[in-house]
């Protein structure tokens, strides 16, 4: 089936089985590799991206559901050549180790900050439910607070 949607601000039409997970359309059809595969069962969050501003796990999200919607991946989080406050905070706190899960965490954080501009530790614990095997949570928590501060300073 043909599915029309916007991705990172660009109109896109794909002709594909509508039940194909959005993740594979993003990665293999549109060649945006910033969204990662981790488990295929919405359990780890490596594939997190935004659909109409909501954080979703794209490995378990059929592409037919994005018809007419706005999809944002890590590549589209900020305008060309600039870093989103979340990316900037991640750099300042030197968060990534292996780095594989980080795009999912950054996308989840960016969505969280839209809803709760200054999350408490409790808000972070309750909303950031992705998995990082390297154990970078400690720096991530600092980076989330820092991202909130950068975002406020920029606005």
């Amino acid at each position: 089936m043909k599915i029309s949607f916007n991705i990172n601000g660009q109109a896109q039409i794909v002709d594909i089985d509508g039940n194909t997970p959005l993740l594979w359309v993003v990665r293999d059809v549109l060649n945006l590799k910033g969204t990662k595969f981790g488990c295929g069962k919405a359990a780890c969050g490596a594939c997190t991206l935004h659909v109409n501003g909501e954080s979703i796990r794209s490995c378990s999200y059929p592409v037919k559901f994005v018809e007419g919607k706005e999809v944002v991946t890590l590549e589209g989080l900020s305008a060309n050549g600039t870093f989103h406050p979340v990316q900037q905070a991640w750099i300042e706190e030197v968060v990534p180790q292996c780095g594989y899960c980080q795009p999912g965490f950054m996308m989840a954080t960016a969505a969280l900050l839209e809803k709760i501009p200054h999350p408490t530790d409790k808000d972070i614990d309750e909303n950031i439910m992705n998995i990082c095997r390297c154990g970078t949570y400690y720096r991530m928590r600092k980076a989330i607070h820092r991202a909130a501060a950068i975002k406020q300073a920029n606005s």
Binding site: T35, T73, I91, P96, Q102
Partner: peptide, 8 residues
């Protein structure tokens, strides 16, 4: 490798 990992 910081930048590469932050832009995915």
């Amino acid at each position: 490798d910081l930048k590469a990992k932050v832009i995915g």
